[in-house]
Design a protein around this nucleic acid. Sequence first.
DNA 1: AACCAATCGTGAAATATTACACGAGTTGGC
DNA 2: GCCAACTCGTGTAATATTTCACGATTGGTT
Lengths: 216, 216
Amino acid sequence: MAGFCGMNGLKRLSRASVLRLELYLEVLEHFGKEGRAHITSADIGEAVGITDVKVRQDLLHLGAAGRPKVGYDVPRLTGLIREVFGVDSLKPACLVGYGNLGRALVGSNIWTKGGFKLAAIFDGDPEIVGTEAGEMRVRSITELFGVVKSEGIQAGVVVVPAAAAQEVADLLVAAGVQAIWNFAPVKIMTPETVVVENQSLAWGLITLSYRLKSRG
Amino acid sequence: MAGFCGMNGLKRLSRASVLRLELYLEVLEHFGKEGRAHITSADIGEAVGITDVKVRQDLLHLGAAGRPKVGYDVPRLTGLIREVFGVDSLKPACLVGYGNLGRALVGSNIWTKGGFKLAAIFDGDPEIVGTEAGEMRVRSITELFGVVKSEGIQAGVVVVPAAAAQEVADLLVAAGVQAIWNFAPVKIMTPETVVVENQSLAWGLITLSYRLKSRG
DNA sequence: AACCAATCGTGAAATATTACACGAGTTGGC
DNA sequence: GCCAACTCGTGTAATATTTCACGATTGGTT
């Protein structure tokens, strides 16, 4: 009764659920690397600081099935969560703005973790255009429209100064991008169909300050 | 009944509340820069995508008072939220690991936003030690213990490879740090009294992938 | 001065989330 | 083969969050 795993008719997950699932995924990948074949809900719960019941409920909503006395199959569960997040297929993405943060992102392993493949890097500064960036070359922002269209790039990461963010976003949208990860500290306007995820590095630090002030 | 504003005995805010308050703060600072003296709950709500009622309730818990027909006083409310987060006083912090991400953080404006003052930068690589970093010099990690102690540094930002994270955290804790912002993708062990905030750049990207997959 | 429109403050209802309790199924040992 | 221990699945209760509805207060206008 608990659901045919194949069907994709999952309920929409709450934001809190998504956040927890991301933590679970990290724990699972860690245990997976260590070669553990099974993991219990209590193990996961302890690792992320919540109760085993909540873990089981979260996993149940996903249609995951654990075996009593054994726990959940690590590779299977990992795969399931990755599928829910859609990070099992690597969608082409591009990054705009090759400053320090851009460099950090390019050199990190977030792309495969997040279900994307970095396909192009753009910058507006002529001194930076042409630079080697990992295994690719930084292209001029004037090429953006054409490259995004021809390569079928689905997502754009905006790592430019606030003043340029809206312009870059417009360009990305015009070229057909479906999702934008915005690091600029401004609200960018886009059509409803485009998914925008804003990111501010300051949030983590503010949270830290708050928790430090009220110890707990 | 609803509380003497002066007293600081605020209820503990939920994680969701804190996240929302951080958004409000950003909106307020934006409006403040534009010179707006007042702002309504509906304005804030629209900017962050929630209802005006929820905004008012959040602000009420903080003890903020708005005036009917006018709204909330922008500088006053900004100050109040900053006070709640404890970002009004700048606490000394240090950063460990001067790679690309470290450089991005050093060059950003998150420090004052987050209520800290970057007081020292450390790295273990002899080639990096001594480098100019903004207005300071990158110090050797061997100096960490002494500098943290003598400068009374309260928080440490860990931007080193996973393998070195625990060691760095231990060093920071031993030197008396009260809070750690950890970018390394490992769970670090610390005494209960130390606040640890984990940050993974991948989370935003995974969330984007999820939202892209299930459009909404 | 009196009215109107806008906006806040807040109690109550609806909804969602989380914690608890316990039955059911599975493994491993004797 | 049977028993005991462990862990999942899930109905129920408790709690928290969000929405709704409405009265109260203020500022402008005639």
